[in-house]
Simulated scan of single mutants.
Amino acid sequence: MREQLELLRELADLQHVTLQVLPFSTGTHASMGTSFTILRLHSNGKRTVYVEDLTSADHLGRPHHLDTYTRVYDRLRMAALGLNESQSVLTQVIDELGTGR
């Protein structure tokens, strides 16, 4: 796990990457139990939502899907720690894993 977190910390330093930590203390949120990716094609600006679970995957492109998932994404970003705080949490957990605490 330590190596995975170190890689995330390295990736967070890249200019085109934004990494924010959503702490457990935030509690429940609209994305509990599901993951999704909002994709936008630069060539034509089209957007789609990619959802994946244990037994299936799908692309959702209807406006109500895009609006709903974009709203959830925005709420997750607002609830997450800021960039500096997120980096600090990563560093703290990496350090704790190194000391075996």
Rank of each mutant, 00 (worst) to 15 (best):
A12N: 08
L5N: 02
S56R: 15
R2Y: 09
L39R: 02
T26P: 03
V93H: 01
R47K: 13
V72P: 04
L22I: 03
A12G: 06
S43H: 14
F24C: 04
R77W: 03
L22Q: 00
T28P: 12
P23W: 03
S86E: 02
I94A: 06
L8N: 02
G27C: 10
K46T: 13
L5R: 04
E6D: 06
V89K: 12
H64Q: 12
P23V: 00
L22Y: 01
L97N: 02
L8C: 04
N84P: 05
K46E: 14
V51K: 01
S43F: 12
T37W: 10
E6V: 04
L19T: 00
R9I: 05
R9Q: 15
E10C: 07
T55S: 09
T28A: 14
D67E: 15
G98V: 02
H64M: 05
M32T: 05
L66G: 05
G82C: 05
L5M: 06
Y73V: 05
G98A: 13
R77H: 04
R101S: 11
R9E: 13
L5E: 04
A80G: 01
V72T: 08
L83N: 08
P23L: 01
R9C: 13
Y50A: 00
R47W: 05
P23S: 03
V49E: 00
I94M: 06
L60F: 03
H29Y: 12
I94V: 08
Q4P: 09
T55H: 15
L22C: 00
I38P: 02
F36E: 06
T70D: 12
T28N: 12
L54C: 09
V51W: 00
V72M: 11
G61E: 13
L11R: 15
D58H: 12
L60R: 00
H16N: 15
L7N: 13
L5K: 06
G98H: 08
F24D: 10
R75V: 08
A80S: 04
T91L: 06
E6C: 05
R77M: 01
D13R: 15
L90C: 03
L7Q: 14
F24E: 13
G100K: 07
H59P: 00
S56N: 12
S31N: 08
V89D: 11
